[in-house]
Amino acid sequence: MIAPWNGRGLLLLHELRLRGTIAAVASVLSYSSSTVSHQLAQLEREVGVKLLVPEGRGLRLTPEGEAVAQHAARLLAAQEQLRGELDALAPDAAPLRIAVLQTASRTLVPRVLDALREALPALRVEIVVTPPEHGLFEVETGRFDIAMAEQYPGHTRPHREGLDRDLLGRDPIRLAAPPDSGVVSLADARGLAWIMEPEGTAARAWAVQQCRAAGFEPDIRHEATDLSAHVRLVAAGHAVSLLPGLALAGDDASARLVDLPGSPHREIFTATRVSARAAPGVRAAREALSVAFATVADAG
């Protein structure tokens, strides 16, 4: 009889493959680094081959370690699929964690929670507002069940094996300017103060490229991840911004909205693990998000 391998060690090896360092694995799972190292060493003894080798101040997976980590990922996916089948027999047993975009927190989340309370009243739903890069990564690791994400024209996000995407819809992007500014085109925003998302985000890169295509370098004086701050500064006459429709939906702040050449839009999608997509809570939440997005888009 073949002795089973240490399940905790397999989980830790899977996490190490995703996160890269023992310190990161220890932090996210609330273990000490020494505990993680001990469990991985025990797994290595059980498997009987070298799984990790030193690289600089860290570790890297050997080819054998990579193969075992992929095996661990398949085991975790099979376990999650079975969990979904059991949940179908006893719905609402496990909590549902959803990572949402900041622009969805005010407009979509209340509608989604209303729908889920009606469809699955015993389901515990946990919402975290987080950047899409973080949400997508943590869906892959299993910390979230669903992530909302965005992609701007020309800035598509990588398709990760094991993740299932579902397009919610397209969110139009327009230039928002102070109501009394007289701005009627993107070129008119030359020389004005801009507010944009932080450097390194897809939204920032796309917005800068639009300004350059219009023949100028934007004067970026303000940065904020919270797009409601963009709306407020624009309405108060302190900046202009390129804003998606969700950022403006239901907001009573006034702004002059100017259509952009080609009527660009960002795509909003949800992602979940393939092994989790059939779970009742995941299915219900994705459906609720789709209905909420369509309702808000139609109202806009």
Rank of each mutant, 00 (worst) to 15 (best):
E161Y: 02
L108I: 14
R97I: 00
A239H: 04
L246Y: 15
H38P: 00
G65H: 06
R117A: 14
D252P: 08
G200L: 09
A119I: 05
L18K: 14
A255E: 07
L29Q: 13
L289V: 09
A249Q: 08
L242R: 07
D259I: 01
L116G: 10
S228T: 13
P198R: 07
F269R: 08
V231W: 01
H134E: 12
L86P: 00
A122C: 03
R106D: 03
S33W: 05
L233Y: 06
V274W: 05
P172K: 02
M148K: 03
V125F: 14
R283A: 08
I220Q: 04
V274G: 05
I195R: 12
A207G: 15
V282I: 15
H38Q: 14
I127R: 01
P244I: 11
P179L: 15
G84W: 09
D166N: 00
V128D: 07
A247C: 10
L12P: 00
A149V: 00
I173M: 15
H38E: 15
D180A: 12
W206T: 10
L12Q: 10
G56P: 02
L257S: 08
P264I: 08
P121Y: 06
H238D: 05
A203H: 10
V184C: 06
V240E: 09
V139G: 06
L233W: 10
R8D: 08
T270E: 09
V28T: 14
N6C: 08
V234I: 09
V296K: 11
E85L: 15
